[in-house]
């Protein structure tokens, strides 16, 4: 300490102090500054890369320039969130046409998905990929999220997010063990049959509460027994009628038969 104090008048001291001060400020800013959505930080290179990926993998259905064809919708304005959701959950690219696109193994790396998202976002403004702040369920209120979920989501996705049937072969997918980011993006973009729940309808804070509720359900413990998909009274009734009555009929036949 004495050695340091003795050299405080050294000609390099000021320069060193300035350097340290700048480094600390810079590091603190980097750590504390509000994070921008990734779409907003898209570089020209990323957009160019995304365009190439789009032409190679998506343009056959969505058309060159994403203007849409008979096979697929136009994409300007769907936003980076929609691309991130569709490609990040493996729904896109589609393998075969059908009433509904299901999830598959994800075909692209997160960098490639971000590039395509940047390209689509560069065509027309649309919902951006949400800030991590609002997709982290651990920061939300699961009780309020549960209330919002039961009013807005439960009629299709089931009260505990197990999913359910829609008309003519379509279905609301299960929301169990889904990344908060994709839950958020689905609400903002309204993929396939799902309506849009924009930020004025359900605020980003409330969306985070819904994510918190779903993640709380994922963590809830099974008190025992078969859940039968947590789908409610229909599969439970079917199980009871088929297996419960079946066993009873079996016993009745055994009771009535003569012993050999």
């Amino acid at each position: 300490m004495n050695a340091l104090a003795a050299r405080r008048r050294h000609p390099a001291a000021i320069a060193l102090l300035l350097l340290v001060g700048l480094l600390v400020t810079g590091a603190a800013y980097a750590a504390l500054a509000p994070k921008q959505a990734s779409a907003a930080t898209a570089t020209a290179d990323q957009v160019e890369h995304g365009k190439k990926l789009f032409l190679a993998n998506c343009a056959s259905c969505h058309g060159i320039g994403a203007v849409g064809t008979d096979e697929g919708p136009a994409l300007p304005g769907v936003g980076a969130a929609s691309v991130d959701f569709q490609m990040g959950t493996g729904r896109m690219p589609m393998t075969a046409p059908g009433v509904q696109v299901g999830t598959k193994k994800v075909k692209f790396s997160q960098d490639e998905i971000a590039a395509v998202a940047a390209y689509i976002a560069s065509l027309a403004p649309g919902p951006a990929i949400p800030d991590g702040e609002f997709t982290d369920g651990s920061k939300g209120d699961p009780a309020k999220g549960g209330e919002l979920f039961r009013v807005n989501c439960a009629m299709c996705h089931n009260a505990v997010g197990s999913g359910g049937a829609l008309t003519r072969g379509k279905y609301a997918p299960s929301l169990r063990h889904v990344d908060g980011k994709y839950i958020y993006e689905a609400m903002v973009t309204g993929p396939q049959s799902m309506p849009v729940f924009n930020d004025t309808n359900i605020t980003p804070d409330s969306k985070r509460d819904i994510v918190a509720y779903l993640h709380a359900i994922d963590k809830s413990e099974n008190p025992g027994g078969l859940t039968l998909g947590s789908l409610g009274p229909v599969p439970e009734g079917l199980f009871a009628w088929v297996f419960g009555l079946g066993i009873m009929v079996g016993f009745a036949v055994w009771l009535g038969s003569k012993s050999a």
Binding site: N152, N198, T200
Partner: peptide, 21 residues
Amino acid sequence: VRDPELTPIKASDVTIGSVFH
């Protein structure tokens, strides 16, 4: 008003494809 928050809804809040309860 929205269920369950009971906040009023501006017409401009309701984008195409939206559903409000």
